[in-house]
Design a protein around this nucleic acid. Structure first.
Lengths: 245, 245
DNA sequence: GAGAAGCAGACTGTCGACAATCTAACAAGA
DNA sequence: TCTTGTTAGATTGTCGACAGTCTGCTTCTC
């Protein structure tokens, strides 16, 4: 028999597609932080009953980008400066760990994939497609986590990434100029190809820190604005989180 | 008006209670790894319809202790030696980070809570209650993550803990003698109260390593046994994970 | 007897309807 | 005018039933 490996066919349940749709809507900022998701309306728009929609929402709640309050509703999570700070500081630790694990596993296929993803970022930058630029940049950074051969690490990073992507989208959407960021990733890629692991680790930490400071400042300005009243329609969940212990 | 703070009342939806029930059943080993969860049977036993049960199961899938295959069923995750290895190595990194964050925040309340949880472990040990011993030991180790004031870290650790608790339960259930482990935590607690952060960090790494080796050896022996046939009724999910990208 | 086609049976996925709960507007009383 | 009780509307939580899919057995053919 032939040695051809077939890729598994796509999961074809309504629930899975709803999850993908909702996740994309949230991560690209089409659904704003704090916004309430009306089950009936969304179900009608998607031509789906509420059952699979609700199951999809439960998944996204556990994924950390939605939050649910019993009998009140399900909301897109609110972005606080502290959340961003927390996520980034943990991300640094994970990056360092991922580089350590990936380092001895690097091979030609790794370098090729690294270049491919780097090229995708540059392409998105040329196209002035900010949404895609965020996506591709995160995919570039995700390579070390995928390559590290530690499923728990990968899973953790992906969860963190969801949130970071949300924050970035919020940020990018807010600022006027589409995007400057010419080629910050150049050094990152070069170091990952090099021989000095420590250098790669500390650069990852530095580099991430840069975008971060700007994002954090933006988040803080948002909070200042919000706290001065004018809370708009973004219903503020005031009760406890649904996560039981 | 008075300054009394009321705690938020308990979330009282069937779904939340089902989640708690199922999680406990899985973490204590009442539901074995690989076992399939029959929706109809469980729903009848709990006197609940399938809707909230299914939603609860979606949450636990995202929590990482169940795995779902469309049109085939939902299963308790299988424990592989690699999973344990992955989880533990990440756990070390997280512990180190948590100690770093917690260190400057330690105060009298921290030390009191530390002693309280340490005492709970010793009590469970005296009672020869292995399940509770696992629970309390993990709670003791969780304190640094709770105290670190980083919600993302805490969430990540709790997710990891779920899995570790499962593995521990499996292990404890298997070995004959109830439990030796007199007071390994004594040093850990003392170092956390001390002045040398590095020492505390490296001890956390060492200490965790101990239990780990034993657990890992057990997992490997399990896999050897399984691969020699006799796969029992534990239906092995052979298709792809449901997690779409 | 071996292998393919077809056929129940069981189970998961989805739907529409009902029950429980919350919110906000309104009325009544001090 | 402020507080409290009431009520209607909207929304979420739950239920029972139906449809789609998989699995294992049976049957038929060679």
């Amino acid at each position: 028999m032939g040695k051809l490996d077939f890729a598994p066919i796509a999961d074809t349940t309504r629930r899975a597609e709803i999850v993908a749709l909702l996740r994309r809507a949230i991560l690209t900022g089409q659904l704003e932080p704090g916004q309430k998701l009306n089950e009936l309306r969304i179900a009608e728009q998607m031509r789906v009953s509420r059952a699979p929609l609700r199951e999809a929402m439960r998944e996204l709640v556990q994924e950390g980008i939605l939050t649910s309050i019993p009998y009140a509703g399900t909301f897109v999570i609110d972005v606080t400066a502290k959340d961003i700070d927390d996520a980034y500081s943990l991300n640094k630790v994970l990056d360092e760990f991922a580089i350590e694990l990936t380092w001895p596993l690097r091979d030609q296929r790794f370098f090729d994939e690294l270049d491919r993803r780097h090229e995708a970022v540059k392409q998105a930058t040329r196209d002035r497609d900010t949404t895609r630029q965020i996506e591709t940049a995160l995919q570039l950074h995700g390579l070390i986590h995928e390559w590290a051969d530690n499923s728990v690490l990968l899973e953790t990073w992906q969860r963190l990434t969801s949130r970071l992507q949300m924050y970035f989208a919020l940020h990018q959407r807010a600022r006027k100029e589409p995007v400057p960021d010419e080629d910050i990733h150049e050094t990152y890629v070069r170091l990952l190809k090099g021989a000095d692991m420590r250098a790669a680790q500390s650069h990852a930490r530095e580099h991430i820190g840069l975008d971060f400071e700007e994002l954090l400042a933006y988040a803080r300005s948002l909070e200042q604005r919000d706290s001065k009243g004018a809370k708009a329609d973004r219903a503020g969940p005031t009760r406890n989180r649904p996560e039981a212990s």
